[in-house]
Amino acid sequence: MSAHAKEPIRVFIVDDSALVRQVLTQLLEKHTHIRVIGMAADPLYAIEKLRKAWPDVLILDLEMPRMDGLTFLRQVMAERATPTIICSSLTEPGTACVEQALKAGAAGVFTKAKLGLRKGLEALEDELVRSVEHAARQAPVRLPAGKPVEEKKTVAVATCGLKSPERIVTLGCSTGGTLALEYILRRLPENCPGIVIVQHMPEKFTADFARRLNSLCQIEVREARHLDRVHSGLALLAPGGLHMQLKRSGAHFLVEVLDGPAVNRHKPSVDVLFRSAARHAGNQALGVIMTGMGDDGARGLLAMREQGACTVAQDEASCVVFGMPKEAIRIGAAQHIELLQRLPALICHFADPANQQ
C-alpha cells in the first residue's frame, strides 16, 4: 500500500457463531482496503472490546445470547453512532426485522443464509464487500471547531412564500431517517405539496420502505421512477443505488432517476437532489435536512438558500445523529432549526396559499 493510500476500513464482527465470524473475516481480509480489528460472540463482551478500539463499521447478528442485536444496536447508536450492517438469516427484504433494524439506525442489512454453502462464497463476498463499503461511506465527518449555534425555535415560514401555485418540498436524511420520515409523512394531508426524498438506504430496500409508508399515510408514497411528475399529495423516494434530481417541465416538476458516481460517498446523494432543486425550483422550494451521519446535503441546502428557497435543519435533540444538520447549520445553509415534531406543520404551513408574499 502506497504512502498516499487511504487507511483500510476497520471492521468489528459481533456474532455468536464461530463459523460465521471465521468466514466473514476470511472474506473481508482478502481485500487490502478492509481490516477486521476484532470480533465477539455476544454484545456484552463486544462493548468492552469496542471501547478499546472503535471500528469504522460494525457487523452485527440479530439473534445472540444475553442481549439481542437490535437492543445492542440502539445502545451503540446512543453511545457512539457507528455505521452498522445487520448480518442475519432474519433480514430478508420486507421482513419486520429489516424495518426495525433500519429504524434503529442500521446502515444496511445483509442476509447470511448462504454462509454454509462454500460454492456460494464468491457471490457472498461481493455483496458483503459492497455492504461494508456502503456503510463506511456513512462514517461521521470531523467538523472544525466553531462558535456554538444559537437555535431558533420559531419558524417564520410565511416570509418564504411563493408567487407560483406549485410548491415543492425536498427532504434529505440518513441514519435515523426512516423513523423521522415515517413521523412526518404520516401526519401530512392529501393536499400537501409534492415531496421528493433522498434517504441513504441500500439498494433493494427503498421499494419496500416506500410501500410500507404508502400503507400508513394519507398521501401516496412510492419509489421514484425516471421522469415521474411531482404533484400534490405524492412523495417520491429516491431508489437505493441511483441518484434523483429535480427538473422543471413547463409549470410542473419532474424527477430524473439516473446512475452515476457516488457524490459525498453516497448514491443516492442528498446534495444531488438539493442542488437540482436550487437550479430548477428556486424560491418555490422548501429544503429540509434531517438526521444522519456525515455532511451530505449541507452544501446543496446552502445552494437552495442562495436561490431563495426556505431551508430548515432538524434540531439536535430530535436527531438520532446530528451530523448532516450540524454541518448545514455550521456553513449557514439553514435559515431555521426545528424539532422533528414541528416539521409536518411547517410543511403544511409552507403549502398554504395564504402565506404567499
Results as ranks from 00 to 15, higher is better:
residue 14 V to R: 00
residue 23 V to D: 02
residue 24 L to C: 03
residue 25 T to K: 12
residue 37 I to V: 15
residue 39 M to C: 07
residue 40 A to R: 01
residue 43 P to C: 01
residue 46 A to E: 08
residue 50 L to F: 06
residue 56 D to T: 15
residue 60 L to E: 05
residue 64 M to A: 13
residue 65 P to Q: 08
residue 70 L to C: 01
residue 73 L to E: 01
residue 73 L to H: 05
residue 74 R to I: 02
residue 74 R to A: 11
residue 76 V to Y: 07
residue 77 M to K: 06
residue 82 T to K: 06
residue 87 C to N: 09
residue 92 E to Q: 11
residue 94 G to Y: 07
residue 96 A to K: 14
residue 106 A to H: 13
residue 108 G to F: 05
residue 110 F to I: 10
residue 111 T to Q: 10
residue 112 K to N: 05
residue 112 K to S: 08
residue 114 K to Q: 08
residue 118 R to M: 10
residue 118 R to H: 01
residue 120 G to P: 00
residue 124 L to K: 00
residue 128 L to V: 05
residue 136 A to N: 03
residue 139 A to C: 13
residue 141 V to E: 07
residue 150 E to M: 10
residue 151 E to C: 06
residue 152 K to G: 13
residue 156 A to P: 02
residue 159 T to I: 05
residue 162 L to K: 10
residue 162 L to T: 15
residue 165 P to T: 10
residue 166 E to I: 12
residue 173 C to W: 00
residue 175 T to K: 09
residue 177 G to Y: 01
residue 180 A to H: 04
residue 186 R to S: 15
residue 187 R to K: 11
residue 187 R to N: 06
residue 189 P to W: 03
residue 191 N to T: 11
residue 194 G to R: 05
residue 202 P to D: 02
residue 202 P to M: 07
residue 208 D to P: 00
residue 214 N to H: 13
residue 216 L to T: 06
residue 218 Q to G: 09
residue 226 H to Y: 12
residue 240 G to V: 04
residue 241 G to H: 03
residue 242 L to K: 15
residue 246 L to D: 03
residue 247 K to G: 08
residue 251 A to M: 15
residue 252 H to G: 15
residue 254 L to W: 03
residue 255 V to A: 13
residue 257 V to F: 01
residue 258 L to K: 14
residue 258 L to T: 15
residue 258 L to M: 14
residue 259 D to Q: 11
residue 259 D to S: 09
residue 261 P to T: 09
residue 271 D to T: 14
residue 271 D to V: 01
residue 274 F to K: 03
residue 277 A to Q: 14
residue 278 A to Y: 02
residue 279 R to W: 00
residue 280 H to Y: 13
residue 298 A to Y: 11
residue 299 R to G: 04
residue 301 L to D: 04
residue 307 Q to A: 13
residue 307 Q to H: 12
residue 310 C to A: 11
residue 312 V to F: 08
residue 312 V to S: 07
residue 314 Q to T: 05
residue 317 A to L: 14
residue 317 A to H: 10
residue 320 V to I: 10
residue 322 F to G: 08
residue 323 G to M: 07
residue 324 M to P: 03
residue 327 E to G: 00
residue 330 R to D: 03
residue 332 G to W: 02
residue 337 I to G: 01
residue 340 L to G: 05
residue 344 P to Q: 04
residue 351 A to D: 07
residue 355 N to K: 14
residue 356 Q to H: 08
